[in-house]
Structure formats: structure tokens, C-alpha cells
Amino acid sequence: MDKYLDPKKQLQEWLALSLDQPLNPEAAKQLEEALLHSETLREDKAVLLRMRSELLGWKPEPVPGFLQEVKKGIEKRQREAMVLYLFPRIAVASIVIAVGIALLSAYFSDRLSDKMTLGVELLEPDDAYGFIASE
């Protein structure tokens, strides 16, 4: 017997344990003796057995449309997964298209001509002569 445990508590624990697995011989013997002499312990055993039997017989209320709800949930997850899959790709494609449109617009409005890009647009012939002379 566990000397740190109240003898009554120890017997109750053995009683509960004995319903699921065999006790060691010494504990089994003490419990058997206690059951013979204690009305309270016998009542405890009866309560435990009734409680276990009630728990085993539990049934939740039926939930109508459970399967339909599961199917709806799956469809919703699939849509969400599709969005998560497509979103970065659509975002990147949109950015590429937007930049392309901006560049084309700038090009056709002459704000982005070849000369401007090369930096020679504003170079006058005199400037060129001056540059050559300085060399």
C-alpha cells in the first residue's frame, strides 16, 4: 500500500484500476477483503460500474445533413486552395502586364524614344564639335 496515500483513497484507486486491468496479488487481496467488509466500497463499485455502462451506451443526437455539410466544407476548402494557388501567379502576371503597358505607352508618346534612352536626344552638333575640340 502506498504509505503517502489515504487508505480509503488507495482502495478506491485499486477498485477503479481493477475494472480495467488485474492488480498485483497483494493489492487484489486487500481490495477483496475491503469489499467484503465495506458497504461503502461495494456501493462505490456499483456506482463505477453503472457509470461505465452509461458511458458505453452514449449516443449523440443525429445531425441531419451532416454529409452535405462535410461536402460543402470540402468544396469551400477546394475553392480557397485554388485561390491561394492562383493568387500569386495572377499577381505576378498583372504586374508584368502593367509594366509592359506603361513602357509601351511611354514609348508611343515619345517620352521614351531611342534617343532619349541613349541620352543623345538633346545633343546639338555644336556640342559635338566642342567635345571633339576639347579632346
Binding site: 483513497k9 484507486e13 477503479a16 480495467d20 463505477l48
Partner: peptide, 8 residues
């Protein structure tokens, strides 16, 4: 042991 204590 958890089962026993839980029942008690």
C-alpha cells in the same frame, strides 16, 4: 492510472 483517477 489516469483512467482510475478520472473515474473517481
Amino acid at each position: 492510472s489516469r483512467l482510475a483517477r478520472a473515474q473517481i
